[in-house]
């Protein structure tokens, strides 16, 4: 089977890109190796760990289970897209304040999942936060500090 390339046009973090890809390349690999957006991490490549979570038209998806050719014509958002040019976003500040990361490998996926949740539901209860984050594995924190950080974003706040 010839590994033929084709050109796809996609929008990443609001910026249009034209990129030559092989159909077998995952979106995660194309983001990292072709577009230089290394904020998206690749953990398990089987859809389990959630480190590669990005948004496809605003919805969280696994970028290791989506081929880059499939993203043609769609809007992709990565962790770079929810990070201000200077400093940190309010959610990133909350992660910092609550020690919601140690090695940082899962953090981009955690941030994108949590940010997507908060945009849909600005005041989620703890069970809702935990349910949303079940698809993102973290081997450092034991999750409690991540949950605390997300809960602190509610208008009523959370425990600091």
């Amino acid at each position: 089977m010839a590994d033929e390339r084709s050109v796809v046009e996609l929008t990443v973090n609001g910026r249009p890109y034209r990129v030559e890809v092989s159909p077998r390349w995952s979106l995660a690999d194309v983001l990292r190796h072709r577009l230089g957006l290394t904020g998206t991490h690749v953990g398990c490549e089987q859809g389990v760990c959630g480190a590669c979570t990005v948004w496809l038209d605003g919805e969280p998806v696994r970028s290791c289970l989506l081929f880059a050719v499939q993203a043609a014509g769609h809007e992709i958002t990565t962790v770079e897209g929810i990070t201000p040019a200077e400093g940190l976003s309010p959610l990133q500040e909350a992660f910092h304040r609550h020690h919601a990361l140690q090695c940082g490998y899962c953090t981009p996926g955690m941030l994108l999942t949590a940010e997507a949740l908060l945009r849909r539901n600005p005041a989620p209860d703890e069970a809702t936060v935990r349910e949303a984050l079940t698809g993102n594995l973290c081997r450092c924190t034991g999750y409690q500090f991540i949950v605390d950080a997300v809960l602190s974003m509610r208008p009523s706040g959370g425990e600091d």
Binding site: T53, L56, V61, R62, T113, A116, E131, N136
Partner: peptide, 9 residues
Amino acid sequence: IGHWAIRTR
């Protein structure tokens, strides 16, 4: 079924 990011696809 799976998790949120699995169910969206």
